[in-house]
Structure formats: structure tokens, C-alpha cells
Design a protein around this nucleic acid. Structure first.
Lengths: 347, 347
DNA sequence: TTGTATGCGTTATCAT
DNA sequence: ATGATAACGCATACAA
């Protein structure tokens, strides 16, 4: 309410002068500067960002478009964005497409998401944010969801086929490679995989990482212990039951997410198979609940927070045109060792 | 970039006329109206919200101040806010105080939060949001965190001692009463409680609900099976181990959150006590992982989404001064029946 | 060192 | 039915 004009009046100066001291621009004598500062303090003046934005054509706020806040990855990424944004004076305008609730929990293909996007984008564009961060709920192709040249944009937890776009994701291949290697080092030779759906990039990448680890260690690749799950609990349970029923069951299971790992543990419990004594299990994601399972689940942690930070870093670099920005950041997952893995018995 | 002025020029009218058709205000002939609309379409005009906000002194955005997005309750509440906001043309400016990361995971007393608040609030105030929603990470007293009369605000998942403030929370007492009653109906007479810390309002409310259910059903209240946990896994585990060691262990446990319930299940597994065959367990919160536990946990679901919706409804009602707004909305929890409860054996 | 004046994109008052 | 114009709060080019 109290504006630059009010304080100019009280300090017997022009609005320009006030603006100068406020922004540290211009050349103001120490005397008047002090007087003005004092009045500002006294009147508890708060600059009006709206007016400033209008004038400067910069809002210092970035639009965060998230497919669903409710998805397990979103909050932590947002938190990372926040950390960096705060340090650099940016605010966050949050746009939540709510695809989970709107389209149902499963089978959200990108076509539907694409239908939801335009209104969200249009809305956010007229709010004049300086840039955009798009957060997917799955690492999948969202090409065309945001119109080209709409605004400086960085995509995280998803990707596009557009050469000019910016991304930050994590390294699926390496993560699976490391998880598998870890199991191998523990003496396991017979490592089953319960993968996600194979139309998903992460599933394929992780499988490749697994495969390479098997090859690099001169183990034999056994296709019969590779099971294609659907990311859900029940598939983890069912395929584990199958694996357990084999003549010579695997001594370890690599599940491509913690949910299927939980399903796997459930199947083991049902059949009286002890984890990790009889079979080792490692998950993927490091969901919060993985330390509430019994036993606590060993799993690959996704660098969600860091992804948020890096996404925001890329974006601010983009906005300040400071040199060239890395096009496709790939962060590393880290193995969280808990209690669901033991050395192979045959050792 | 293309402004009202540009389209006025192209349509051979004044900016005023354009503004009139844009807002449906004024009296414009159908002919020019159509022409203008056409130009708007042709030039792909997007109104500039910033300019509009400056003129109207209304931004149609509300500030969401959240103690930590990362806390399990936040995302779903935000989602609810979003649902209502979207339907009413509001945007969300998200301010994340990040108390969990900043102050460490435990023992975040409100004093520290209070220190973090002022800068967050100041920031958001200068962005000129129309109103505020404050989301706590625990249902506790946050009086004074937001300066009086700063802006219309509604508090959710927390409360203040200020008579004039607005809240939306859930009914702890009733929830615990219902959970306990449910157990009693299943034939349980010996129902232990693992509560949260007793400096917390929800702990006390829930205990009172439990107690009243015991009384209303003419059962005897046994103080020795009331254990004061600290909301964490380990306390659930430890106290359950204690309970199990008694001469006549309880046949059911009511844990005041799902995490301690998971701890309880863990203790049972360690001692070879089967859930629900030997002992029934009900949790609180309906965290996502509760259906990944083995057995799947029966628990009280918190109405988080609805809290967000109702908070936003209160706020918009407040802003439009439409009649009087309910000061203190209390939503109901609902029991989610899964597999951790069975009828008492003695039945 | 400081002040005057203009414009950012709108809305709305008052003319016409 | 439509237009000219001031104002919203601020930054800045230019003048003094």
C-alpha cells in the first residue's frame, strides 16, 4: 500500500531518488540515502513486485508444471527447485495438471496428458513467468507438450525428442549396473529381474545395465528369470511366486521399483522363504516406505532432490545466458544398503 | 508481447473498446465486437496478467506457505487446493519453508519454524497474492507465524490460538473413537495403544477418543497397555515387543500412525507372532506404504485432499466476503479395512 | 547529486 | 456505441 511515492514525499525527494537507493543504482549522497532508508524503515515499505515486473518485463518467478504433485517423485524435486530458487531470488508458480486423479491411476498415456497441457500452459504463460520447469511422473517422451519457443524450459523426470530442449534426469543404465554388480559381489550368480513395462525407457535402460553387469562378470544370462512386471505390487508378488517355484530358484531378485520389491517380499513371506537368508532382494527408488518393510529394503536411491536443484540451475543459467548450459544432465543414483541382501549361501 | 494496443490498432478501435469486449463490460455493437474478437484470435493475443493485477490490485493468485512440501501430508493437501483453485481461476504461488531439511528431521519445535517464517512471508507479501493458505507438517500451534491482518489466511494441518483465524483440520477424537470401536466390534477387549508424543494435540485427542470408546463399551481401561511412542518406527517396534512379552498380551494394537504400526508389525514378525491371526493392528494416516506391508495395514485415512479443497473454499469465500465462513472446519477420517485385523480369538 | 517525465499493459471514468 | 485519458507502482533516460 505504501508506495515509492509516499516515501518520496516524506523524505522530500523525488520518486526517482528513492528508486535509486532501493536498487543501488544511481549516485546518491550518503546523507539523503540514509534519510530515505530511514523513512523506508519507518513506513515499513514493501516494494510492489507486480509493478516492478510490469516495468521490467521480468517476474523473477518460474512456472513449475507438474504432471501430478501427488506422484512420489514430485515433492522432492520441487523441494530441490525451491532450494536453488530461494538462493537466487526466484518464486515458484505451481501448476498441477493432476493427471493421476483426472485420468485414473494407471495407463496414463501421453496422449491424454497432452490434452491436459495446453490450458495449463496458456494459463501459466499469461502469468508471465520467466521460465518453465516441467516435471513428469514417469521418465517418458513428452515431446510437444510445451509449444516450441514458448519460454525457456527445462524438463526433468521426462524427456523430449527435440534437440534444442534441456533435460535433467538420472542414469538408469548405470544404476542397474551398480545394483547388479553389488549383488554379484555378494556372491550371487543367479539374479532374477522383475522389470517394469518394456514400453518404458527406464525399464529398457535398467535391463541393459543389468545385462552388461552380467556380461562384464562372465556370468551366464538366463532369460527365464527375467520377468516383465507392470510396476505394481501384485506383479512383484506373482512373479516372485513363480521364480520361487522353479527347480533351482534364483538367489537374488532385482526389482525395478520398491513397490514390486515389496510385492516380492510379500510372496516370500507367504511361502516361508526368508529374506535375506534364503533370497536377497534389491529395489529401486528408495521410496520412504522401503525402510518400513521387514526386513528393511536395500534399494537404489533416485537423486530427486538434486534433479530439482540442477533443473533450476540449468534454467537460471539459461535465463542469464551465462555461457552454455549442459543439454542433458544425468545424475547418479546411489545404493542404499539395508537388510534385504545377504551373501549368497554357496559362497 | 502483442498487447491490447496492437489489437486496437488492427481493429481500428480504441484500447478501451478492446478492453470492453475482453471483459464483457461496456456496450459494444455486435459488429465491432465480432471484428475485435477475430483480430484477437488472429494475433493470438494473451492478456497480460501482470498489468491487469497492477491495475486491479488483485492477482487472482494465492500464496501457499508450506512448512515442508516433502512431508507426507503436503502434496495431497496442495492437490486439493489446486483442484478448487483451478475451478475458480486462481493460481498458486508456492513457498516452501523446508523445515525438515533445514532443521533436521526431528524435534522441529515451532520456535525454529517461527524464525524461518518472516522472510518467507515478507517475500510472498510483496508478490501481492490475494490470500494465504498455511500448511503445517504437524497439527500444532503456530500462533504468530503470520502477522495479524497480513492477508486473509486459512490454516490447515495446524492451528493458532487466535480467535479470528480460520482453520481446516480433521477430527482426531472421532477417528480414534471409530478405530477403537471397530476393534471392539471385532471382539477385542484388550486393546493396546501406541501413541505419539503427548505434547502433541493429536496424541491427546486420539487418546481421548480411544478412552471414550472403551468407556462407552463398558470395557476396563488398562493403563499398562498404553505406550507413549514418538511417532517413529523404532518406538512402534520396541513397545510392541514389550507388549508381546506380557503374561497376557493384548489382542489388538492401535498405533497412532502407520509408521509405528509398521514397527509393530516388524516386532511381531521377529517374535513369530502372526498378524492378524495372533494379534490385530490398526494404524493411522493411511500412508501409501500401508498397502505394501505384509499383511496390508488396516488404518484410518486422513482427509488430506478434502482439507486442501476446503481450505481453498474457505479462502475464496473469505475473499469474496460471501456470507460468513466456517471458522473451524473439522473433516472426518475414514477407516480403510485391509488385512491386519481379525476377530478376537476368544469370540 | 537529484528531479522530470515517460512508459510498461491494463481498466474505468468521463466525454462524445 | 465508442474514444481519450488517467492511473496502478515502478524504473530509467534525460535534463538540470
Amino acid at each position: 500500500m505504501t508506495s515509492i511515492k509516499d516515501i518520496a514525499q516524506r523524505a522530500n525527494v523525488s520518486t526517482a531518488t528513492v528508486s535509486y537507493v532501493l536498487n543501488g543504482t544511481g549516485n546518491i549522497s550518503e546523507k539523503t540515502r540514509a534519510r530515505i532508508l530511514q523513512v523506508i524503515e519507518a513506513m515499513n515499505y514493501q516494494p510492489n513486485h507486480i509493478a516492478k515486473s510490469l516495468k521490467l518485463k521480468k517476474t523473477k518467478t518460474i512456472g513449475v508444471v507438474v504432471e501430478d504433485v501427488t506422484s512420489f517423485n514430485s515433492a522432492e524435486i520441487i523441494d530441490g527447485i525451491n532450494e536453488y530458487a530461494e538462493d537466487h531470488g526466484f518464486s515458484l508458480l505451481l501448476t498441477n495438471m493432476r493427471v493421476l486423479k483426472r485420468l485414473g491411476n494407471e495407463r496414463i498415456d501421453t496422449e491424454h496428458v497432452r490434452q491436459l497441457a495446453p490450458s495449463a500452459i496458456k494459463e501459466i504463460l499469461s502469468k508471465k513467468v520467466d521460465g518453465l520447469i516441467y516435471i513428469g511422473i514417469h521418465t517418458r517422451d513428452v515431446t510437444g507438450i510445451i509449444p516450441d519457443n514458448a519460454l525457456p524450459t527445462v524438463y526433468t523426470y521426462c524427456y523430449t525428442t527435440n534437440e534444442r530442449d534441456f533435460f535433467v534426469n538420472y542414469n538408469d543404465h548405470l544404476a542397474a549396473y551398480e545394483a547388479t554388480t553389488y549383488l554379484i559381489r555378494k556372491g550371487h550368480r543367479n539374479i532374477a529381474v522383475i522389470s517394469g513395462l518394456f514400453n518404458s525407457n527406464p525399464s529398457r535402460e535398467r535391463f541393459n545395465g543389468y545385462y552388461q553387469a552380467i556380461m562384464d562378470n562372465q556370468l551366464v544370462f538366463d532369460p527365464t528369470i527375467i520377468k516383465t512386471g507392470d510396476w505394481e505390487f501384485e506383479s512383484g508378488r506373482r512373479f516372485t511366486a513363480e521364480l520361487l517355484g522353479a527347480d533351482e530358484p534364483p538367489t537374488a531378485i532385482l526389482a525395478m521399483n520398491d513397490i514390486m520389491a515389496a510385492g516380492a517380499m510379500s510372496a516370500c513371506a507367504e511361502q516361508g522363504v526368508r529374506v535375506p537368508d534364503d533370497i536377497s532382494i534389491v529395489g529401486f527408488d528408495d521410496r520412504e516406505f522401503s525402510s518400513y518393510l521387514n526386513p528393511k529394503l536395500t534399494t537404489m536411491r533416485l537423486p530427486l532432490h538434486e534433479m530439482g536443484v540442477e533443473a533450476m540451475r540449468s534454467l537460471t543459467d539459461l535465463l542469464s545466458q551465462s555461457g552454455d548450459v549442459e543439454k542433458d544432465k544425468k545424475l547418479q543414483c546411489t545404493l542404499i544398503e539395508r537388510n534385504s541382501v545377504a551373501p549368497a549361501k554357496s559362497c
